[in-house]
């Protein structure tokens, strides 16, 4: 250990832990997606709880399993999917700042609901930036590799005022059906009117083929009203892209910048955060934005 340096040592990353921040917007014309935290609301809250700027890099922990050791006294907070959380084997709650002493271990067990938890450290995770962001883009392999045991992450020095929040009152991710707002388009005219009806009335199961790129859904088949191929076009986070099988994929943070299948509708940005917490087996419902 380098005395005096602030760092966090990864003992076990669990199934998937990546460094994420607000991403690298503005590069899609070069074929580079935005990436960044999949549940941006939970990520920003974690930073606020430790007094960071909202866009400091934090850890995105998928389905818990992360064990880290502080090599220095640190202030941390965990948000998002509620993991049983221990510091030096003592249980703590999430959504609250926690002081960790040098040498203590922090463990996140598997969450009771939700997919992704965010661990922020006062001062921020300061791995080198790539194209202005510390985010791991799992699709284009831009940014740091997913974390592995033995990795040591530099932590920035605290700045600004001490955090003011002691506990953020946020609801845990739902374990039941989620209802998400959508706007039709850009290619709703590629589908039958029955397809839009089915999308808005049906239930779509989140399948196991889901990751930071997108969530493959399974439900009523969305039938096309025309044949032919769509020339590839730019896509957005939240897009519901429909494959020739008629099943939609909901694009998350690492989605491809262009896609060749028609997008029937786009999920509202705030609801993408909630979708990113849905587990395989959970169901999604869609309703038109702006209608009760």
């Amino acid at each position: 250990m380098n005395p005096g340096s602030r760092q966090l040592r990864i003992l076990d990353p669990g199934p998937l832990t990546t460094v994420q921040d607000a991403g690298r917007p503005g590069l899609a014309h070069l074929g580079i997606g935005t990436s960044g935290a999949a549940d941006r609301g939970s990520y920003r809250l974690a930073n606020r709880l430790v007094g960071n700027r909202e866009d400091e890099a934090a850890l995105e922990v998928t389905l818990g399993g992360l064990v880290v050791r502080a090599d220095h006294d640190l202030l941390i907070a965990v948000t998002g999917a509620p993991c049983p959380l221990t510091v030096a084997e003592i249980g703590y709650g999430i959504n609250s700042p926690i002081s960790v002493m040098a040498g203590q271990q922090v463990g996140l067990r598997s969450p009771v609901s939700g997919m992704r938890s965010y661990l922020a450290v006062r001062g921020g995770i300061r791995v080198p930036e790539v194209l202005g962001s510390r985010s791991t883009d799992t699709l284009s392999a831009v940014g740091p590799d997913p974390l592995a045991g033995g990795d040591v992450l530099p932590i920035g020095w605290p700045y600004g005022a001490q955090p003011e929040l002691d506990l953020a009152a946020v609801a845990a991710p739902a374990e039941t059906d989620l209802t998400l707002s959508v706007r039709p388009g850009p290619r709703d005219d590629w589908f039958t009117s029955a397809a839009m009806h089915d999308l808005l009335e049906g239930r779509y199961e989140v399948t196991g083929e889901s990751n930071r790129v997108g969530m493959r859904l399974s439900g009523p088949e969305l039938k096309r009203s025309r044949t032919g191929e769509l020339p590839s076009e730019g896509t957005v986070t939240g897009a519901l892209q429909v494959s020739p099988s008629g099943q939609p994929t909901l694009f998350l943070a690492d989605h491809p910048v262009t896609g060749g299948y028609p997008v029937i509708a786009v999920v509202a940005r705030a609801d993408v955060d909630r979708a990113a917490q849905a587990r395989p087996g959970q169901h999604l419902r869609f309703r038109l934005a702006g209608r009760g």
Binding site: P25, G26, A28, H29, P231, S232, E233, G234, T235, V236, V257, T258
Partner: peptide, 14 residues
């Protein structure tokens, strides 16, 4: 307009 993404027949404006 913060992002301009041209493609084969379209331009996406974020």
């Amino acid at each position: 307009v913060v992002e301009v993404v041209p493609a084969a027949r379209t331009v996406l404006l974020q």
